[in-house]
């Protein structure tokens, strides 16, 4: 495919984001057309209280997941990397679930509003550090994906244990929330809780851009170009930990966004890792926002969870990717 200039792609994505954001404010159980936007219309309260936070949150979370995926793929030189596949999101979910227990058994700590995002980010950070530690010098594709499998199993077992020991049905319900990500009924408080951390995380990830490009030539190649890889690892771990952790803390696990977004952009922008960071943030926001509009429009008794819908779409995509890779490796 013919390459497009980064500016064209970014402009296009911002444009798409604008249209989707407007659509996201209108769409839902109650359709709020453009004429109804204004203080006089009773439907305005729906937009103000429900849809603006939801829309902004979709953008923030999508940007976090998209850029985390692009950065992880660049660092690992592995197109199958993504916070979900590598178990970082599961670890964040485990952190969030643990914080529920902490709140239940240590009521003194329950009042801390930041407890949950902090625990989720800590979980994500532990996940990234384990990944980087496990794979270390020899970061082959297989080691990395296996490390992700291990993290997913461990985090899944932790969450299952939490379900197993849940003190009441309400707690079970809460825990399930973190397994199936959703943007339903999120408030401005949720946005305030996540957006600053995501913003810092994204800035840290952007700081790895020279290193990600240099890593195209392998670790020794990157170091010969003057890249300090321990600094890169630290920035990456903190960046993904903050961005993905803060996202999972408010929306639960939404998989595959980080995996799919860079792949959709590579045909237009080329595979240079640094060139994919910002477009992947925008692309991730577009995908999450579009997905969230879609789940609101699907006619069903209970709203389909966004995390479930993404997994349903992302699974086949992942399979197709594996098939293509297998053909290339064969």
């Amino acid at each position: 495919m013919r390459r497009l200039s980064p500016l064209t792609v970014i402009t296009g994505l911002v444009f798409a984001l604008g249209i989707l954001a407007a659509l996201s404010l209108m769409a839902g159980r109650v359709w709020v057309p453009l004429e109804a936007w204004g203080r006089e219309d009773p439907r305005w309260i729906i937009i103000l209280e429900l849809r603006i936070p939801r829309t902004l949150l979709a953008i923030v979370v999508g940007a976090a997941l998209g850029m985390s995926g692009a950065a992880l793929q660049g660092y690992t030189r592995n197109p199958l990397a993504d916070p979900g596949v590598l178990g970082v999101s599961s670890m964040a979910a485990l952190g969030a679930v643990v914080s529920l227990y902490v709140g239940f058994y240590l009521p003194a700590l329950a009042g801390i509003a930041w407890l949950m995002p902090l625990c989720a980010m800590a979980g994500a950070l532990v996940g990234v550090l384990v990944l980087i530690g496990l794979t270390g010098q020899a970061s082959g594709t297989v080691t990395f994906v296996l490390a992700g499998v291990v993290l997913n199993i461990v985090a899944g077992a932790g969450v299952a244990l939490a379900l197993n020991l849940a003190p009441n049905p309400w707690a079970v319900n809460e825990i399930v929330n973190w397994l199936m990500g959703s943007l339903t009924d999120r408030s401005m408080a949720d946005l305030q809780m996540s957006a600053p951390f995501v913003a810092v995380g994204l800035v840290l990830l952007i700081l790895t851009r020279r290193a990600l490009d240099a890593l195209t030539l392998g670790e020794i190649g990157a170091r010969s170009l003057g890249i300090d890889l321990s600094r890169t690892r630290l920035l990456l771990a903190l960046g993904v930990g903050l961005a993905a952790g803060a996202s999972v803390a408010v929306t639960g696990v939404i998989g595959f966004v980080g995996l799919v977004t860079p792949h959709l952009l590579r045909p237009f922008l080329g595979p240079r890792p640094a060139g994919l960071l910002l477009p992947s943030a925008l692309g991730g926001a577009v995908i999450v926002l579009a997905g969230d509009i879609l789940v609101r429009l699907i006619p069903s008794a209970a709203e389909v969870r966004l995390g479930v819908a993404m997994a349903a779409l992302g699974g086949p995509f992942f399979l197709a990717l594996l098939l293509i890779q297998r053909r290339r490796l064969a």
Binding site: R77, L215, T216, L217, G218, I220, G221, P271
Partner: peptide, 10 residues
Amino acid sequence: PQSPEIAWGL
């Protein structure tokens, strides 16, 4: 480096 890997089709 000796026969360096090249990760992406740049």
